[in-house]
Design a protein around this nucleic acid. Sequence first.
DNA 1: AGCCCCAGATTGTGATCACAAAAAATCCAT
DNA 2: ATGGATTTTTTGTGATCACAATCTGGGGCT
Lengths: 216, 216
Amino acid sequence: MSKPDRPAETSTPTHERVFRALRSEIMHGEITPGQAITIRGIADTYGVSMTPAREAVRRLTAEGALSLSKTGRVSAPQLSTERIEELASIRALLEPELAARAQPRAHLALIERLQNINTTIEQMIVKKDAVGYIRSNLEFHRTLYLRAQAPAMLAMVETVWLQLGPTMSALYARLQRPNAAGNHRTAIAALRAGDEPGLKLAIRADVTQGLRMLGS
Amino acid sequence: MSKPDRPAETSTPTHERVFRALRSEIMHGEITPGQAITIRGIADTYGVSMTPAREAVRRLTAEGALSLSKTGRVSAPQLSTERIEELASIRALLEPELAARAQPRAHLALIERLQNINTTIEQMIVKKDAVGYIRSNLEFHRTLYLRAQAPAMLAMVETVWLQLGPTMSALYARLQRPNAAGNHRTAIAALRAGDEPGLKLAIRADVTQGLRMLGS
DNA sequence: AGCCCCAGATTGTGATCACAAAAAATCCAT
DNA sequence: ATGGATTTTTTGTGATCACAATCTGGGGCT
């Protein structure tokens, strides 16, 4: 009898596609701080009209990923030293909690995934690949935090990552990367041992050390 | 002759106006969870076209203030119990820190302002005015945190308030309000005494107690 | 009565246009 | 050539329109 069939699965809207693409670029540091962003530029970069481009920009500015001047011009934000330290503080408050919540749910496969990601991080450090380093570093944290079953808290942390993205990429040379892999190893060991205080400490150290000396 | 003169100071854009108005309504609990929101409805409520209404909705959804179904319909979010507790946890992590940062900068005038707001809160409790209670309660917290000089952290906390707004209003009857004023008094006393641990404890108690038993 | 199906109304989405403000390029007088 | 005024271009903003998907009632069939 062939019911009407539902072949036309509602495709994801254009503004959503553009939003996701831009957000990924910003979070992974592919945008330079202060770089001018124009709505029309986005529109014909992605081959769409102004409307979805504008909506994507609105969402991004709402998340603090883009800052707009009084005249409405948008650009990737130039973060002040105080702002960087503030965002680092937020990470230091939320991420240990996420790690602690993930711990009881972390099984062996997850730990192995984390180790694999960590070797990728080390490779990126050797290759001095800023974008690759940021991407795999965030993947490490996200992989762990996804187990926390705390989507709102994870979303909040991702917003912070987003705001830090362009700055971290621009100041990549000043980033204290050597310790990152070490802190991650400590975290993994604590995860294995079921040592919650140690895990929280390692994550906190990773976050604060990595972002130290970013403004000088 | 006669220089062009600059009388037309660029007025705040329409989408900004609509956004602020909607955001305030949501944060203060004037929207019922699950209530359907239509772009055209917003548009002719505020006497504007669809474009700025859509942009306001986009920003609000980016903040989690509105949730949209797969079909694109938007509504005030129905928070699950787990989500409520998660948001309460975020408040419990961030707000004590904001209070602690505000403390060294808190002078006498601020403390008096807080006391005045607190008496207003008590009046709202007596009058059983849900919206008034939420509004003045948030004003109490915001007044304190503004002194923390931590705009990013405050913005993050406001986002959480925004997400909780409709639910808090709907479940107003279950809110443990009697203790609110008491916790606030404890916080004020700690503020006066320069007792940072006491202040952080009072704020944490206020946040967690107030939101306890919101899902049953 | 219960259920299904279809027509009409509602709604989100994307494109296009007109307009004003701002930025950039150009020109002119010194 | 240089600095300031002016013209040209760029850009954000808001409105309107067309279209498809969705939702809503109503009517007819079993």
